[in-house]
């Protein structure tokens, strides 16, 4: 393989891995606290992206728009918890009920986006915005560097938060055993709301960066969710480090994979990786027995 081409594949893989990391971090955070697969997570990411779309159209300027987008995602996420998941927790509904409700939220949010903004594809930035860098023979756009930087920053901040703050300890206690956390006096319901806010903001950031990279479309949420969920499962559900490893593994397998198969089959690769792990190592890379 030509060195430049190889370098490009590596660069693309790393960028993809970084994007999936942002999704999987939020997904894993929420999963750890609620123990169900929140299918609305991707739609929340899309909300963030469209928040930026709306704000830039209104002339808010990029930095403010990004803040707005992230906040919109976080708020939508918390609302879904307060209005739907929290009441279901109080009813002690079984896991499938949560999943089905989250599918409903996913459909509802996507439809709201389609009705408000139309079903077509929009770029989030004017074309040609941002510089293009040459790194060791690979061309990388400025947005892509932002993706990488955000993933690193988010992972770092989350890691510090979880390991060194009381807040982080509370989150970890809750994820380990909700009943025990309650007995320790933690208001688990409210904490879960906070976790939803944090996790959804991460999703929003992922959606925004994805939007900058490849534009927005109401259906963008599903693809992001699937990549995030596959990363989480491959890495080992519940393990944040595992999620990151899974995200990069997915990024590499996808990008090097499409060197062998045509690029339209990219989604098939994610699915193939998922299937292999589910059959041979369902607990994922970092999962415990």
């Amino acid at each position: 393989m030509e060195r430049m081409f190889f370098a490009q594949l590596v660069a693309n893989s790393v960028i993809a891995g970084a994007l999936y990391t942002l999704i999987t971090l939020g997904f894993n955070l929420i999963y750890g606290a609620t123990k169900f697969t929140n299918m609305a997570h991707g739609a929340v990411a899309a909300m963030g992206a469209y928040g930026v779309f709306f704000a830039t159209r209104e002339g808010w300027g990029l930095p403010l728009s990004i803040v707005a987008g992230v906040l919109v995602a976080g708020i939508v996420g918390v609302i879904t918890d307060r209005l739907v998941f929290s009441p279901l927790r109080k009813k002690k509904a079984r896991a499938s009920v949560f999943v089905i409700a989250s599918l409903g939220i996913f459909a509802l949010l996507q439809s709201i986006l389609s009705i408000t903004f139309g079903a077509q594809f929009w770029p989030l930035l004017p074309p040609g915005t941002g510089r293009v860098f040459d790194i060791a023979g690979a061309s990388v756009t400025e947005v892509q560097l932002w993706i990488l930087g955000s993933a690193v920053a988010a992972s770092g901040i989350l890691f510090i938060l979880l390991k060194f703050t009381i807040f982080g300890k509370v989150i970890r206690a809750l994820s380990d055993d909700e009943e025990v956390a309650k007995m320790l006096g933690i208001n688990t319901d409210r904490m879960i709301g906070v976790i939803f806010f944090l996790g959804s903001m991460l999703a929003g950031l992922a959606g925004i960066l994805s939007g900058f990279d490849t534009g927005v479309q109401p259906t963008m949420g599903l693809f992001l969710l699937l990549e995030g969920a596959v990363s989480s499962i491959v890495g080992g559900i519940g393990s944040l480090v595992g999620g990151i490893l899974g995200a990069f593994l997915l990024g590499f397998v996808e990008n090097f994979g499409i060197w062998f198969i045509a690029s339209q089959w990219k989604g098939a690769i994610a699915f193939g990786l998922l299937t292999i792990f589910l059959i041979f190592r369902p607990r994922g890379i970092m999962g415990k027995d």
Partner: peptide
Amino acid sequence: EIAAHVRLGLYGLALILFML
């Protein structure tokens, strides 16, 4: 144009409301 999306939204809403 938006009828299809409204329909989708209503199905989603139906899922949420019935589960609740």
